[in-house]
C-alpha cells in the first residue's frame, strides 16, 4: 500500500516557520512509522532529521506527533492507523531543534529535580540482602517505573504549552513512583517539591497525559499526589504507618 507522509522541515537556526514536505512510501502490514521514516531517509531524502533508539518503544527516543496524537514511531504500525495520509510532527510544547527533533534539556532537568532516586531511613538488612517488599507494594510502582521518558505526556499537556515551567506529567509520575515506593521515606520532601507553585496544582485534570505509550495513567497519578499532599497538610498523612505496614505484611 502507498501511504503519503506530510513532514514539517524546520531548522530553528534559520527558519521562522516550518515548510511541509510530502513523501510517498510503500508500506507492508508490518511497517512502523519509524520504518517508514528510515525508508524515506535511506531512499528519498537523507536530510530528514529524527531520533531513533531501541526500535521497541522501550527507550523513548522516537516520540512524535502522528496524525494529531503523540505516539512512539517505533511501536505504531502505519496500517494500524487506517489512513493513507499521515501527518507527522515534532512533539508540541518543546523547542524544536530541527525537523522532528526537539530539545529535551528542560524536560530532563525537571525530572532531575524530582529526586529520581531512593531516599530512605530504613536501614539495609544486616546480612546485606534485599530490603523486603510485598508483591502488592512492588506492583504499586511497577507500572509507573516503566516510564521511558519519551515526553509524549508532557508534550500533550495544554498547561505545559502555556507555562513551560510546569513540571509536567512525566516528572510528576517519576515523583509518584518514589512516593508510592514502600521502601522510600522521603515522602515529605518529595511532596514539598511536587506541591510547589509549578507542580501538581497547575494540573487541571485535562488527562491528555493519560494517553501514554506505556499505558501509565499519568493524570491519575497526579491526582493521587494531590490527595497525598492534602491529607499530609491536614494531618491525615500516614507516612510512618506506611513503613510499618510494609514490614508487617512481609
Amino acid at each position: 500500500m502507498k501511504v503519503t507522509f506530510r513532514v514539517p522541515r524546520f531548522d530553528a537556526a534559520t527558519d521562522f516557520t516550518a515548510k511541509y514536505q510530502i513523501y510517498h512510501v510503500e508500506v507492508t502490514p508490518y511497517t512502523t512509522i519509524l520504518d517508514a521514516l528510515n525508508i524515506i531517509k535511506e531512499e528519498q531524502d537523507s536530510t530528514l532529521a529524527f531520533r531513533r533508539g531501541s526500535q521497541s518503544g522501550i527507550d523513548g527516543s522516537c516520540g512524535m506527533m502522528v496524525n494529531g496524537r503523540n505516539r512512539l514511531a517505533s511501536t505504531t504500525r502505519v496500517m494500524g492507523l487506517n489512513a493513507t495520509e499521515i501527518a507527522l510532527g515534532p512533539l508540541p510544547g518543546f523547542p524544536v531543534i530541527r525537523d522532528l527533533v526537539v530539545d529535551f534539556d528542560s524536560f530532563f532537568a525537571k525530572d532531575a529535580v524530582m529526586l529520581p532516586y531512593l531516599v530512605t531511613d530504613i536501614a539495609k538488612p544486616e546480612d546485606g540482602k534485599e530490603r523486603l517488599q510485598s508483591p502488592k507494594d512492588a506492583n504499586r510502582i511497577a507500572l509507573a517505573a516503566t516510564c521511558n521518558q519519551c515526553g509524549c505526556c508532557t508534550s500533550a499537556c495544554p498547561v505545559h504549552w502555556s507555562n513551560g515551567e510546569y513540571y509536567g506529567p512525566s516528572a510528576l509520575t517519576r515523583a509518584y513512583r518514589f512516593v508510592e515506593d514502600s521502601r522510600d521515606t522521603a515522602i515529605k520532601a518529595r511532596l514539598e517539591i511536587v506541591g510547589s507553585e509549578t507542580g501538581v496544582w497547575r494540573c487541571h485534570t485535562i488527562f491528555n497525559c493519560s494517553e501514554c505509550p506505556k499505558s501509565i495513567p499519568n493524570g491519575e497519578n497526579i491526582q493521587a499526589l494531590k490527595r497525598k499532599i492534602m491529607l499530609n497538610k491536614i494531618g491525615l498523612g500516614r507516612i510512618e504507618v506506611k513503613v510499618a505496614r510494609t514490614e508487617a505484611t512481609v
Binding site: 540482602k129 534485599e130 530490603r131 510485598s134 508483591p135 512492588a138 511497577a142 512481609v250
Partner: peptide, 23 residues
C-alpha cells in the same frame, strides 16, 4: 548476588515473591 542486592538498595523495582524477597 551482591551486585543484585546493591541494585535493590538503590531502589530498583524488582518483581517480588510472597515472602518479600526478589523473585
Amino acid at each position: 548476588p551482591a551486585a543484585v542486592y546493591e541494585l535493590e538498595h538503590m531502589g530498583l523495582p524488582f518483581s517480588r515473591l510472597k515472602t518479600g524477597r526478589i523473585a
